[in-house]
Design a protein around this nucleic acid. Structure first.
Length: 455
RNA sequence: CGGGGUGUAGCAUAAUGGUAGUGUACGCGGUUUGGGACCGUGUGGCCCGGGUUCGAUUCCCGGCUCCCCGACCA
């Protein structure tokens, strides 16, 4: 019974390679589309009382995530799709700047962190630590600066090996004293962290600068480009400032002083006379704005490599420290920011670029076999057109419930099929963000939303 | 880490020193069907430990949990 729907897809869309048949078993290779009746998650009218943050309330109500414990969330099928789509956008942009993806371990060596003086809980207060039954302690990765620098010793011996840029999507574990703001500040979260290794200051700074537009492209693709600012923030060991990417967000944790015309943004933590003077702005020109940090890049200079002993032979045969930078984007936090920024009173509103499905096909009057066959046909037609679609094929749910669920789930477009639309021969297409309703023919629908048009 | 709260069914809640009622969700029967419909019926619950008491979900102590404010946030 469970696999009825799957079997049906196999039959009608076999020719599109959405399924492969080996012997008599049907393997579905891609979940481009899905029947809502098969989704194990359900929507809720009420959010758990212990969630105050809008992002967590809506994501839990809509069945995207569930809470495991304070600051720790599970990503359910719909939520995972959003995370994966955000990751893919980040991945593509990191690849543009030459990043090579890898995956470091979560368990880290105590001795390595001791060598840079950062194993001590007094120095780093977010450590999760454990011990091996065989003896010895391990840390659970809250950052990968040390391990990745250490590992790169195996691959960097000469200036000829550089530049190198590597990145990963990692589950970071941070023992925060207080988790808050739903998925925006948890103890376990997914982060993209990239590290660059360059031969001299010039190439290092050039690479550092190239990541800013790459980051901005990510945010533009997520629909928050115009609200995101490269922001001067507290620096690291080497430079006066680091650069944060701050997005205007009412529920953000930071306050950023912004001058839109001059394109200058300053985190309040470094707002002082010296900063203002060096950047050529006055306090009066800046507007204090609540923001959420969605990215942060650090220039380590040669300091980090020196601490780690990550040396290369230069042209004169001398051993010199490598120039390093690190570049972070909080992937799961970004999902939270998108919910916070775009949700309305009815629920989530996803940007098209990361919505779990582009289209929500809502079938009404499905207790009528004739209408159900018609709606199933529309579902197959949309799939054939290359549109990723979630199909509310629930027979027992009433229209009001389906519309409310659809609003809550937040797919960019809703297409209603019912006895009425069947009789009229058109499709009712509602844009979630604006509420605009259009009536399209099948040809118009596939032309507007099909694979060729969505590129 | 300092301060303040919280804990009753999957979720949201009420009352009570004599072991608990409602909404929602879920099961069954029926009427409905374009914005979370209705009738009937059923399943399901007091965070953990100790104390006071004839008796504790209730009062007291401790623990844990979760939330909020602050601090912190590489």
């Amino acid at each position: 019974m469970m696999f009825c729907g799957l079997y049906r897809e196999s039959i009608c869309l076999n020719h599109l390679h959405f399924t492969a048949t080996i012997g008599s078993i049907h393997y579905q290779q891609s979940f481009l589309f899905m029947r809502q009746s098969q989704l194990f998650t359900k929507t809720r009218k009420e959010a758990p009382i212990d969630e105050v943050a809008k992002n967590a309330q809506l994501l839990i109500r809509a069945g995207y995530i569930s809470k495991e414990m304070a600051g720790v969330y599970n990503y359910l099928p719909l939520g995972l799709r959003v995370v994966e789509r955000v990751k893919q956008i980040v991945r593509e942009e990191m690849n543009v700047v030459g990043g090579q993806e890898l995956l470091m371990s979560s368990m880290q060596r105590k001795e390595l962190w001791e060598s840079t003086g950062r194993w001590d809980d007094e120095i780093v207060d977010v450590w999760f630590k454990s011990s091996l039954k065989a003896g010895g302690e391990v840390g659970l990765g809250w950052s990968h600066e040390e391990p990745i620098g250490e590992m790169m010793k195996n691959y960097i011996t000469s200036y000829k090996d550089l530049p190198i840029s590597v990145y990963q999507f990692q589950t970071k574990l941070r023992n925060e004293l207080r988790a808050k703001s739903g998925i925006m500040r948890g103890r376990e979260f997914i982060m993209k962290d990239m590290y660059s290794f360059c031969v001299d200051e010039e190439s290092h700074l050039a690479y550092y600068e190239s990541t800013k537009p790459a980051y901005m492209r990510v945010f533009e693709r997520l629909g928050i480009g115009s609200d995101t600012y490269v922001t001067f923030a507290a620096g690291g060991a080497f430079t006066k400032f680091s650069h944060e990417f701050q997005t205007i967000c009412e529920t953000g944790e930071d306050v950023t002083y912004i001058n839109k015309e001059k394109g200058i943004a300053i985190n309040e933590e470094v707002l002082n006379d010296e900063t203002l003077e060096s950047l050529g702005v006055t306090r009066e020109e800046l507007i204090a704005t609540k923001t959420a940090e969605v990215g942060n890049i650090f220039n380590f200079g040669q300091q980090k490599a020196e601490d780690l002993g990550l040396l290369m032979k230069d042209k004169n045969g001398e051993n010199v420290p490598v120039w390093m930078g690190s570049y972070g984007i909080g992937v799961t936090r970004l999902v939270g920011v998108l919910v916070e920024k775009f949700a309305d009173e009815k629920g989530i509103v996803w940007p098209e670029s990361v919505a779990p499905f582009r289209m929500h096909l809502v079938g009404l009057n499905l207790d009528d076999t004739e209408i159900r066959d018609y709606a199933d046909g529309v579902y197959a037609m949309l799939g054939a057109a290359g549109i990723d679609v979630l199909y509310d094929d629930r027979v027992e749910a009433r229209p009001g419930e389906k519309f409310a669920d659809s609003d809550l789930l937040g797919m960019p477009y809703r297409v209603v099929v019912s006895r009425k639309t069947k009789d009229e021969g058109t499709f009712e297409v509602v844009t979630r963000r604006t509420g605009e309703t259009r009536h399209l023919t099948e040809g118009e629908l596939t032309a507007d939303f099909g694979t060729s048009a969505s590129a």
